[in-house]
């Protein structure tokens, strides 16, 4: 998203803290996400009044109340629609939609998909904790098969959905994943999302310590993360591991782990896949989304960043064209239409 205010105003995190009492459970991953968002906004020149946070319903959707910006806590699953309407009438705002795995992928799945295919110029943060927190722990659309919850005492029989696959299938122009216990990566990802023009979709792995504690620990836990996560960097080969001794290469259409201990460094780009965010063919990014624990390391970072005209620009362009072609609206002409007759 382009910078709106050119006059440099040095902001601090506290400029974006609203006075409202935070009502998340102690230890919730949302605290880290909120603080990171506040810190990230401080890095931009965008004035406070030009930020808007719009959310649906769920734990994460309380987010706007805690941001000292404009905010709107709306209807379950429908935040992208409200954000789209706002974007269409105001090109100058920086807009974040805050949603969750239930809000965005279940009740609001339809809106998420259409917002992304239109490439509305706004950012979507999908806070994924693989559970329904606010309704106290039912399984969500991202919960794993077999998950035992109050609503699935014999185990969930719902096949889970992958948020990034939805984004790619909807042809989102910016698709990224980050995690709540890596504030630096999170902040960098938020910043990239804001810099991108078009719909930026960011999934953040978030821990619900009450209903689904440690859901992501097998991947993102301190002891394992280096060997089970892979950070995507544009233009660089896919390398991971505590010793940076493993990489990903492509065999046919399938990614495969290779040991690179004995490889010459200059050979690595030849052997390994190099990450390219601008790959137009979505199957590359889709393949990355299929890399999952335990078979493969789980990718984090920007999967895809492409340029495509935004809906709001096209809409405003049509208005401009119409005015140029037909002249600014003349009420009298409109009322009279093409055929009138006079009664004396």
């Amino acid at each position: 998203m382009s910078s709106i205010d050119t006059k440099k105003i040095p902001f601090t995190k506290n400029d974006f803290v609203s006075g409202q009492e935070i009502r998340w459970c102690p230890g919730c991953g949302d605290y880290a996400i909120l603080a990171t968002m506040q810190r990230t906004l401080a890095k931009f020149d965008i004035k406070r009044e030009n930020h808007v946070f719009i959310s649906g319903i769920g734990c994460s959707s309380r987010f706007p109340y805690y941001m000292n910006t404009y905010g709107f806590h709306t209807v379950h699953g429908r935040a992208p629609t409200i954000a789209s309407g706002l974007r269409c009438v105001n090109p100058d705002l920086s807009i974040w939609v805050i949603t969750g795995d239930g809000d965005g992928l279940s009740i609001g799945g339809n809106h998420l998909l259409h917002c992304m295919r239109r490439n509305m110029n706004l950012n979507i943060l999908l806070v994924n904790n693989r559970t329904y927190g606010l309704t106290k722990g039912q399984y969500s659309p991202t919960s794993e098969m077999g998950k035992v919850t109050k609503s699935s005492p014999m185990g969930s029989i719902d096949h889970p959905i992958n948020a990034l696959c939805v984004a790619l299938a909807s042809e989102a122009t910016f698709v990224a994943r980050t995690l709540d216990n890596d504030p630096i990566h999170m902040s960098e990802t938020f910043k990239r999302a804001m810099d991108h023009k078009g719909t930026s979709f960011v999934e953040v792995y978030q821990n619900c310590n009450i209903f689904n504690d440690k859901a992501f620990v097998p991947v993102t836990g301190r002891d394992n993360r280096d060997d089970r996560m892979i950070y995507l960097e544009d233009g660089k080969p896919l390398i991971y591991g505590k010793e940076k001794n493993r990489g990903i290469r492509l065999v046919g259409m399938k990614p495969e782990i290779v040991d690179i201990d004995n490889q010459e460094l200059d050979q690595l780009p030849v052997i390994l896949m190099s990450h390219n965010e601008k790959t137009a063919d979505p199957s590359y990014a889709y393949m990355l989304t299929q890399m999952d624990h335990p078979e493969m390391p789980v990718p984090f970072g920007v999967f895809r960043a492409l340029e495509r005209p935004t809906y709001d620009d096209l809409l405003n362009g049509q208005v401009k064209t119409a005015i140029k072609k037909l002249g600014p609206g003349d009420l009298k002409k409109l009322i009279h239409g093409d055929n009138t007759w006079t009664v004396n």
Binding site: F72, P80, C88, N90, H114, L315, V319
Partner: peptide, 28 residues
Amino acid sequence: HKNFGVKTFQAEDEIAACGAAVGASFGG
């Protein structure tokens, strides 16, 4: 009538149509 600055939005469903309208009103 786009030359009157009219913005029409053919939404994905009835809910989105109304939601977008609420968003526009929030925008003033």
